[in-house]
């Protein structure tokens, strides 16, 4: 973990209210595990913004984010050559056992972002990607998932792109015929509740979101209630997560 000086090399809109920012870094960037995030300084803001790492190589990294509030709006207006600091890589990412052979990725909206790099983290695992969006204007990272996944299914709620419906239903249809070792999920709370209710009989790992202060485990603002045996514990999304076992988190 370090705070790196990043320089913007491009900052482009890639879907409705969604931007991709690419950075270069003079220092050598570390390796990372899909699901880990960075804590990005935004001009004029006190708190940093946690954003999933999409790609990261020696001197390059990228993020994809929705403009939802002031911080992401400022970020979306920044220009090539502007500099920002980012603490990275933070959190524990999707750590998978060596025995896994085939894994399903289930994403909704911006939740697809941290799932993409998982594919490159585990080259020996076969991934099938089920990604859902509201409408075609919201679809992101189709080409990237298409290139890297064994099987891909993109859905939109209005049917304007890919299949009509929800990504979870597409996955349900495939569960019987595929021997998935696990499902990795990232999306809205209603979507996570659906996944919990569906009660897949295989391990489900989830990447959680919570507002953050420090990003490194020191301030306790980002807690998530997690069942450990018979006890409920408040774990920190930033350092104990953001990835947890879905059946252990209280939604």
């Amino acid at each position: 973990m370090k705070d790196y000086n990043l320089t913007i090399i491009s900052n482009n809109q890639i879907a409705r209210d969604v931007f991709k920012t690419e950075f270069s870094c003079q220092e050598q960037l570390p390796s990372f595990i899909g699901g880990q995030f960075l804590h990005l300084q935004v001009p004029c803001k006190i708190l940093r913004r946690p954003l999933g790492i999409l790609e990261m190589t020696a001197n390059y990294c990228s993020i994809v984010y929705a403009v939802v509030g002031e911080g992401t709006r400022i970020l979306s207006k920044m220009k090539k050559g502007d500099c920002l600091k980012a603490m990275l890589p933070l959190g524990n990412g999707f750590v998978l056992p060596k025995t896994y052979k085939k894994v399903a990725l289930l994403g909704g909206g911006l939740g697809v972002v941290p799932l993409l790099p998982v594919i490159n983290t585990y080259p020996e695992i076969e991934f099938c990607s089920y990604m859902g969006f509201k409408s075609r204007d919201d679809v992101i990272l189709y080409d990237e998932f298409n290139k890297l996944s064994k099987k891909i299914c993109f859905t939109t709620e209005d049917g304007s792109f890919g299949s009509c419906g929800f990504s979870i239903d597409a996955l349900k249809d495939d569960l019987e015929t595929n021997n998935f070792d696990a499902v990795l999920v990232c999306g809205s709370i209603p979507m996570l509740k659906e996944v919990k209710k569906a009660n897949f009989k295989i391990p489900v790992y989830v990447s959680m979101e919570e507002r953050m202060g420090c990003g490194v485990g020191a301030c306790l603002v980002c807690t998530c209630q997690v069942k450990k045996g018979n006890n409920i514990e408040n774990l920190r999304v930033c350092i104990d997560g953001p990835v947890f076992k879905l059946d252990e988190v209280a939604l």
Binding site: I46, G71, E210, R211, T223, I232
Partner: peptide, 22 residues
């Protein structure tokens, strides 16, 4: 265990928290 989340918000030049002594 402290308070429920969200426990932090950003305000002009400041930060508002309600960790509640976890």
């Amino acid at each position: 265990l402290g308070n429920p989340t969200p426990r932090i918000a950003e305000t002009p030049m400041g930060s508002l928290n309600s960790v509640g002594l976890q």
